[in-house]
Design a protein around this nucleic acid. Sequence first.
DNA 1: GATGAATGAGGATTCATTCAT
DNA 2: AATGAATGAATCCTCATTCAT
Lengths: 212, 212, 212, 212
Amino acid sequence: MPTDPTRTRAAEAATTATRILDVAEQLFAERGYAAVSVRDIAGRVGLNQASLYNHFPGKQALYEAVLERGLAPIREILAHGGAQMLTPEGGDRLLERLVDQLWSTPHIPKLVEREMLDDGTWFESLAREWLTPIYEVGRRAMAATSEPSGWTEEELPLVVVGMYHLLFGFFSAAALLRRVIGVDPQAQEMRRIHLDFVKDASRRLMRPGAAT
Amino acid sequence: MPTDPTRTRAAEAATTATRILDVAEQLFAERGYAAVSVRDIAGRVGLNQASLYNHFPGKQALYEAVLERGLAPIREILAHGGAQMLTPEGGDRLLERLVDQLWSTPHIPKLVEREMLDDGTWFESLAREWLTPIYEVGRRAMAATSEPSGWTEEELPLVVVGMYHLLFGFFSAAALLRRVIGVDPQAQEMRRIHLDFVKDASRRLMRPGAAT
Amino acid sequence: MPTDPTRTRAAEAATTATRILDVAEQLFAERGYAAVSVRDIAGRVGLNQASLYNHFPGKQALYEAVLERGLAPIREILAHGGAQMLTPEGGDRLLERLVDQLWSTPHIPKLVEREMLDDGTWFESLAREWLTPIYEVGRRAMAATSEPSGWTEEELPLVVVGMYHLLFGFFSAAALLRRVIGVDPQAQEMRRIHLDFVKDASRRLMRPGAAT
Amino acid sequence: MPTDPTRTRAAEAATTATRILDVAEQLFAERGYAAVSVRDIAGRVGLNQASLYNHFPGKQALYEAVLERGLAPIREILAHGGAQMLTPEGGDRLLERLVDQLWSTPHIPKLVEREMLDDGTWFESLAREWLTPIYEVGRRAMAATSEPSGWTEEELPLVVVGMYHLLFGFFSAAALLRRVIGVDPQAQEMRRIHLDFVKDASRRLMRPGAAT
DNA sequence: GATGAATGAGGATTCATTCAT
DNA sequence: AATGAATGAATCCTCATTCAT
């Protein structure tokens, strides 16, 4: 399990385990856990089905390894940068780092969205661990700013969910954007547009709107 | 297929087919297509597995019937109400109707989100049929208002996706809200909070923000 | 069960039971017992699956009714005409009647061939009942004629099987004749050709050949 | 697919695939495709049902492999020996080789007969490929001999079908011979009797009979 | 006599996993 | 580390049959 943050994923040697993780990440993101067979994964890696078990003890473990590898950097960013949200400039820097990270592993936000929909017990612990603190920081952030956000206490959870979707939802909706609206969501210029949009939208959501 | 708009879903006779649709809707939304077995559905309806095939020709057809039944009312609302977006009051009325509808069938937004993630060919036609027109209306709406929205042309698709997630994402994140933040997302008072939030957030997203 | 020999099959009222028998006869002949479903039969008759059980107690019983109806006339002919084989002219008359009968129900020879291949216990009694006597008559016929047939005792069974195939095999090979050789085996003129061929070939088989 | 002609089937290593083919050949011949379940085959081989799919991609593919293995030698004989039919001695040699081959795989003629009855599309290509040329050779053979056969042009197809049944029909009728007439069709002496009969009968059919 | 609905048994096939090589 | 082969459990679906209406 790669936990060394100094080694970027691209620089990792393309070990068999890594190649398995890459393929599994993509397939799990595209189709969901149940719709991906071990045969599919092994086949795409160019491996026999049985060989996969030399690297991971099973399908479930492989899935968790994928999730762990993908979520670790995000957790890192949030753990160290949560306090930045208190100022607009800090918020922007945080968003920049997050958007950067998500764009470097675009399957991960889809996986997270699926986890959320599946309401897996695995997700529960995950969420408790790093979403609750974030939520608290965000809550305090909005309460502490001189300009009030204009949201009531009971609306705050929805604001958090909304912010999450502004960030992650872009990747979930990649197919929609491509097919219906004709945008190419993988184009690198989209990265900048996405970042600008997220920054702007978050300001609109977090500061009082003109129309309230 | 219920097309009579005067008959609400709850008032429908609980025919076997309807009960199958209800159970299937819930399971497909909770676990996704591949993770739901025909046995599961039949079992929950209290039916032999084979009996299900007296009502639907197969799993795929059942899934599509679920989607069709769930999406028809939404399509209806959008088809007749798209033009309302041009004024703030009309937009509010549209949102009211949409939130109402989504709350009456809360599994459906999860199904839509899953469809989007799965990038199914079925979704493609669906999206083309009623998402493209909506997008066009929305685009024109934002261009036509006297106060400009403050978004660039290339950001508009992201605004649409954002709006979608503000509306639908609440249901996808129901588990997160319940488990992490402690909110009960099925409580009826949440319906009002959700509506207020969506109205407010949409104004913030669609009108120029102070911070741009 | 139609046992009245004065009523030809065509003249029978197209009762539901008769229509079922007709469809079943065709399908069983074309595909074999196991490959035909009760649904198939009922469907082609324009009947609900369950309705079929108002006319026949089950699939097996229906099959036996088909066989019985189809074989009764043949059995009749053989029972009354076996002795005719003793003279060439009598043999011809017997063949005429047999070919006539087979052409009036061309699915039946295919059914018989399938029965033979399946080696069904049903076939056993059937064969014992009317094939053994025929065989004995044929044996005596060949032994009694002034001109010896030229066959040894041990070859006689093969001669019988050969005669059977000259008569019945035409219908089994209908597809082959149509597709490979380009003959239309349902054309009525084929009936005469078939009869001539059978008569001629039987003479060749039953009388001493020049080359022995 | 065994293509090495020097290795006889019996000498092949009894690999799992070969054992599956053997069992499948027998069951398909005895009962027909639809009446044989994959479980039956696997069970007789002493294999789990799923293991069979490690050797053949499916039931249909297994069936075709059986047919291919069984028909290849026959095709070979006909392809190389068709011209021999032009002389009586050559014809005898051809028949000897064919009878030899059929007796070495006695299930195959039953399979061919079933294919013919089923009128399968698979059979069509098969027939076109090697039955049409044979038919043409046979036609020319009978037209070329100094002594005319005594058949009319339109009867020729029936002669071909008749010859086919004289050869193959013995195996289809094995049950009939055993049960009704009391002959043991698997006894090796029957092989010689069958060959003699086929040779003699073919002369009778191909040369002018006294009674025409 | 006809039918919609129900069902237990069985159909072919795929699943994740194990193990000897 | 890789693989061919094996397997029990599960997959979706079809089967012949029954029964209340």
